Amino acid sequence: MTTSIVERRQAFTADLYRLNSALASPVPHRVSEARQVLARLRRSFAGPRQQAEAYDFIFAHNPPEAEQEIWLLTAGLFALHPQPRRNTRSLGASMGGLVSVRGESVTRRFTQLIARDRTALAHQLRQVIRLLNSEKVPVDYDQLLGDLVVLLGDRYRGDEAQRIRLRWAREFHYRPGARESTEDSSTPADTN
């Protein structure tokens, strides 16, 4: 029985999240192994030789040939910001939540991110993930992998890629409570 690409992607990200869980294990050997794997995945950004050290983790999940680089990028991004699966948010919502902490510089960074073409997107993503890690803001790596398959794949100029960018922007700019509080304060008081 063959597994679908979606199932393989989910198994891959589940193993990424398991690496984070292993960091909190009471078994020192599990912690050590998880740290070693995460270090190899982080180093994959350094060049081809270092990428080769991460291949065992990536290829154990049988990524489609067209998605191999994207899975490698996602694993490296996770290694920069390992986290548990709970309370994850989309990249747009995560960046939007960071505005209240870091100010308008986050808006500029986010605008640069969604305006990047696919050749510069990976570099910009590394910067954004480091920024999110600095404030411990979670990211949904399941969704991020699926989004990157479109944004960095053959469909990067199509409608689906534009929908992803618009979703990220909507989730970035929509902050529950912010709009309601400004509408409440701008509504004239009843003078009766």
Rank of each mutant, 00 (worst) to 15 (best):
L152A: 04
G97A: 14
K136R: 15
R126D: 02
W71S: 00
V137S: 12
V149S: 03
V149Q: 04
Y156I: 03
R126S: 01
L145T: 00
L73N: 04
Q162C: 09
G47Q: 11
Q83G: 15
L151E: 03
R155P: 01
E33H: 12
Q124M: 11
L72Y: 02
R130D: 08
D159L: 14
L77A: 03
W71L: 02
Q68P: 12
L98W: 06
A122W: 06
I70E: 01
R42L: 01
E135G: 09
H61V: 00
R85I: 15
G96F: 01
R108E: 13
F57W: 08
D159M: 11
G97S: 13
R116T: 10
A122I: 10
Y55T: 01
I114D: 05
T107Y: 10
F110D: 00
P64Q: 07
Y156M: 04
T111V: 14
S105V: 15
A75H: 07
K136V: 11
P84Y: 13
P64A: 14
Q36V: 09
A54V: 10
R155Q: 08
Q112W: 07
L152Y: 00
Q50A: 12
P48D: 11
I129T: 01
L80S: 12
Y141C: 01
V150T: 10
D117V: 04
H81E: 06
Q112S: 10
R102A: 08
P48F: 07
L41F: 04
G158C: 08
G92V: 04
L73M: 09
Q112C: 09
A161Y: 07
R109E: 11
Q127W: 12
Q112M: 12
A79D: 05
L152D: 02
G103R: 12
R89Y: 06
A161I: 05
R130V: 06
G97Q: 09
V150A: 09
D159H: 13
G153A: 07
S105T: 14
P63Y: 06
L152T: 01
V37Y: 04
R49K: 11
R102K: 15
L77H: 01
H123W: 15
A66P: 03
Q68I: 14
